[in-house]
Write a protein that binds this DNA or RNA. Structure first.
Lengths: 142, 142
DNA sequence: GTATTTGCAAAAGCTTTGCTGCAAC
DNA sequence: GTTGCAGCAAAGCTTTTGCAAATAC
């Protein structure tokens, strides 16, 4: 295990938010100042292959970059609010059951799953509702 | 409705495979030869916003591009085989129930969902199994 | 000593944007 | 006539790659 990889793994593990490559690079450099962007990309690819981390798109709310998080025992899904950008994580046995059904019916050996949901969080949905009440004539294509 | 948009919508609707922007552009040009790549991107963004099409990553099996398909009444998920690249589509009431649970528990107004699963299809899993039996000593790092 | 990993810099891939002219209503 | 749409080309952002030097075992 090289120092750079250790630094990257620890950074991902201890991160409180979802990290894209740029943030991951910046934070990892606090441990290993000479670490390079290419190393981040290569290491992330490696860890993905080992099943140690998951790659997320988070509905491309902020461009096409990817985010990374350590793989947890129970898969969780990500709810992305298109209005405020908030990411909600959610795990439920129903998801685990669904995965089992997918694997069984399709005879498919699942290695990774990525379930992302886009829409409005409760507070943004409430705000929108209010807005609609205040302008009762939203126009012909309302 | 402009001719270009009509051409793009019809192309997506009648497509038999998942289209990325390059393929979509090529196929749409058979209807509207002067159509431009920028128009494809702008139209696809528009149709996404209207909820008429879904955007897929297909597990980034072939680079970072996106794929598009018309939104169907019942959402389906995509199984991507990392070995042969095959994409399997699958719909099940369990997925619809999961979505309802997600929406109810999180008070989240779902607009789009994207469930992608990566792994090995049955035939690739079988091939791999065979390979492992033939080389019983895969080395210290398995 | 050999194999693997890294940094660097350049390139590649996909997507977005500014602007001018054109089309739609 | 006004508003929005399309084409073009250039730029933008993220990711990948070739290669020589450095590191790990």
């Amino acid at each position: 295990m090289t120092a750079q990889r250790r630094a990257l793994i620890e950074t991902i593990q201890e991160a409180t938010a979802h990290l894209d490559v740029a943030s991951l690079l910046m934070q990892a450099r606090e441990r290993e100042p000479r670490i390079n962007r290419a190393t981040v990309y290569r290491t992330v690819e490696l860890l993905k292959g080992l099943g140690m981390i998951d790659e997320l798109d988070l509905m491309h709310l902020n461009g096409e970059k990817h985010y990374y998080e350590v793989k947890t025992q129970q898969d969780h899904l990500h709810l992305a609010c298109f209005e405020c950008g908030q990411i909600i994580e959610f795990a439920t046995p129903a998801f685990e059951r669904l995965k089992q059904e997918i694997a069984a019916i399709n005879q498919f050996a699942i290695q990774v799953t990525r379930l992302e949901v886009g829409g409005l969080c409760s507070s943004c949905a409430a705000k929108k509702e209010k807005r609609l009440q205040q302008e009762p004539k939203p126009g012909p294509r309302g």
